[in-house]
Amino acid sequence: MALVEPLDRLHDGCRVMAQEKTLRPEAPATPSLGDKIRYGSPLYNEIAEFYIDEALLLDDNRLLEWVATLTEDLVYTAPMRVTRMNEDPVSDIVRSVQHFDDNFTTISLRARRLTESRNVWAENPRARTRRFVSNVSAHHTAKQDELAVVSYVLLMRNKAESPNYTFVTARRNDVLRLVDGKLKLARRESIIDMSVLGVPHLVTFL
């Protein structure tokens, strides 16, 4: 990037480029669900295998290989939860401010920081993690190449010399897309089950 930027670029920066379409105040459009993909069918097995492989990449900190399994139009978010009474009509899921609100560029940047920098003091020494992914239910969508998949994740995390684990559970609403015969992650919304996160940070991907 040139050190001296033209003024119109600067004002763009201040006005913020509308074409980035960053505003996500409401729930993302739920893909219109088609037929359920039956448990144990060949396609279901392929989806399950995607998650098994993905968990291994993430737990082995092969994050740049993981990034290669993401589509470039990725939307990666993690809403917040605000405790409300049962009768309150307002949802306890909050998307105006979230824990993650990332695209392919920023997720790649986070992955580079976690893998390329020796100075990533949040994760050097890095936590030992284990992701347990279960309860996978999948549907076809109106788009022939896209599948809507719900899964549960239990992320166990042990840090340094601590004798204890910290853990996070979430429901993941994913869109997987078939690209050149392989499944890629196009959309992930991890709805974490905590309102006050019991961890000092959550730089680990869910």
């Binding site: 201040c14 006005r15 913020v16 480029m17 509308a18 980035e20 379409k21 960053t22 505003l23 996500r24 105040p25 993690a78 105006s96 401010v97 979230q98 824990h99 993650f100 609100d101 990332d102 920023t106 940047l109 986070r110 920081r113 996160l197 940070h201 959550l202 730089v203």
Partner: peptide
């Protein structure tokens, strides 16, 4: 609204729970 959203996204990327 787009500017507010960009400010939040930048804030999330650098500050708070998942901030770099």
């Amino acid at each position: 609204p787009e500017m507010k959203a960009e400010m939040v996204r930048a804030g999330i990327l650098f500050m708070g729970t998942t901030g770099m």
